[in-house]
Design a protein around this nucleic acid. Sequence first.
DNA 1: TTTGAAAACGAAAACGTTTTCGAAAGTGCC
DNA 2: GGCACTTTCGAAAACGTTTTCGTTTTCAAA
Lengths: 342, 342
Amino acid sequence: MKEKETTLKVIAEKLNISITTVSKALKNYSDVSPTTREKVLELARELHYTPNSFAVNLRTKESKTIGLIIPEVVHHFFSSVINGIIAEAEKNEYLVIILQSNESLELEKKQVQLLINKRVDGIIMSLSNESNDDDHIREIIHRNIPFVMFDKISKMIPCSKVIIDDQKAASAAVEHLITVGCKKIAHIRGPVNPQNAIDRFLGYKKALEKNNISFDKNLVFTCVRVSFEEGYEFAKQICKNHPDVDGIFVITDLVAVGVLAYLNENNIKVPEQIAVIGFSNWFMSQVIKPKLSTVDQPSYEMGVSAFNLLLKEIRAVKEDKPKVIENLILDTQLIIRESSKK
Amino acid sequence: MKEKETTLKVIAEKLNISITTVSKALKNYSDVSPTTREKVLELARELHYTPNSFAVNLRTKESKTIGLIIPEVVHHFFSSVINGIIAEAEKNEYLVIILQSNESLELEKKQVQLLINKRVDGIIMSLSNESNDDDHIREIIHRNIPFVMFDKISKMIPCSKVIIDDQKAASAAVEHLITVGCKKIAHIRGPVNPQNAIDRFLGYKKALEKNNISFDKNLVFTCVRVSFEEGYEFAKQICKNHPDVDGIFVITDLVAVGVLAYLNENNIKVPEQIAVIGFSNWFMSQVIKPKLSTVDQPSYEMGVSAFNLLLKEIRAVKEDKPKVIENLILDTQLIIRESSKK
DNA sequence: TTTGAAAACGAAAACGTTTTCGAAAGTGCC
DNA sequence: GGCACTTTCGAAAACGTTTTCGTTTTCAAA
């Protein structure tokens, strides 16, 4: 009792008209009489006709689908960005295919290839920690596929980007620590590769210089996995080896929470003995004790903007117009809570 | 200088052979001579040929893409499930389109329609709090589209499901509270609709009955948004109106963290005065003070299993075999931490 | 009735692939 | 040289849609 799929052909045959006319009627072409249009629309409704998107894709050469590659889904920041992207995409009738690079360059390459083969209309991406300026990214550009990077970007790639001013935001965070009286500030930084880890580090350094605090490279600790455990561990090292540290600027809230956990367990008073400030404004940071000071990153808006930039490019490419490269720098906000109020 | 796309036709013309032979050579058909096959493969590599997936989709009637609808992306449990699904999908060369219903029935309906029109090969779904046994779900079944539900399911829909035994797990959690000496146990439950909120409530009730503790409906508090704030608020109500409550079983960790926040702020000792147990084993629950007891839900595995069930169905449908409905019940684990050790 | 323009329709090509089936060419054997 | 295979190839249909462009029909004005 296999039901036959409703196609234009089926409708055409039932009404004894041509496929062409059926198609036109459904797409509101002007050269079909009101009478036939009505008949077509009614029968289409009755038979639950939906255009075969495979055929439409082939014919129009677009799939109304974009690809998104991010390092990690289970992450407050990234899942918020995803949220923004798919919400905005849906508004514009686009669907989103999500891939997770797991911070692996190899996987990332495979996934870019997958998306290219899939012929998505565009790609949004945040780089894995391992990758930087690589061939797979260049191929996207070379193929003239609309492409937007956000957050973890490569400065070398000529494409639209949505970022924050990491250096400035980090500087502000560290200056805040200085303002509340910190004299010796440690920095738990992100991995070596990612641009934003570099920039936050540079911001840290700049704030010290500006306030005539000498930079000590022994006070910089580099995360590899960017985890709670690393925060805990580095906090321990700091307390053991640098008892005079009175402030810590941490690459991201999750790690900062690890720092707080160690300090709490060892009865080191925050912020009295050591002030702590994180980055990203993770939901959890206002829930723990003491509430964590941090830098708010507009993650949802980042997703929205990234999609809109991509949409612009998609439209430009479609009309064979030259590609416009836009760099969007979103505002961040210093959020001062208990962990840095002296 | 628009480059021409490499198609079978282009390769065929350059080699002066037919499209058919090119296609066969690339797909390892046996009726093409080693010599021509080599020539084809080489040229294909040289021209970076990749099959046009739009055409392949149309021809083969499948897209190697599945759809996933979940209530919320920014949520530890769901993002872990997503993680499992896309990882397993990628292994099997499937891509995943993700949509977020935002707990809205209306959006959910639209999205199901979107996926059906997109002609995805299958759909995985977790229901929004508003929906239950509705037409849009039935249409998926009716159209014979491979379909798997997980976590928030509807018992009425005949399809494969991946769940945990919420009732049993909840019972175990509450019995644990009883074991450590709680005599009057409150329950902060989830919304009215979702099956798992119902089941956890039933588990709570059953544990009380089994231990001859009378059920008091005034000790049950119903979340609407399932938020941190609600936990905080209900904890306040419990302390004000039911000072003799000595244990709380909470629908999920996020809400339980809200409960702990209120109790901490008001110097109510956990677990000495009130023991608390949550659900889901959110990462954060082992980081706060006191560490939260909870029920571990194998979220990643849920994603993996859901995809594999779906794959089974996809294959069955493709071979016109009868659909097998499978119900997978994954194991949970009681995790006892500080918040319930008396 | 003829004419001309406007309205309504349809044939056909195109998108790029897969697959069936028949034809051609090659091989070995008597 | 004829026969029976096997190997290798290609024509063509099919998937379902969109769109161009030419044809037919209608109908008012002359």
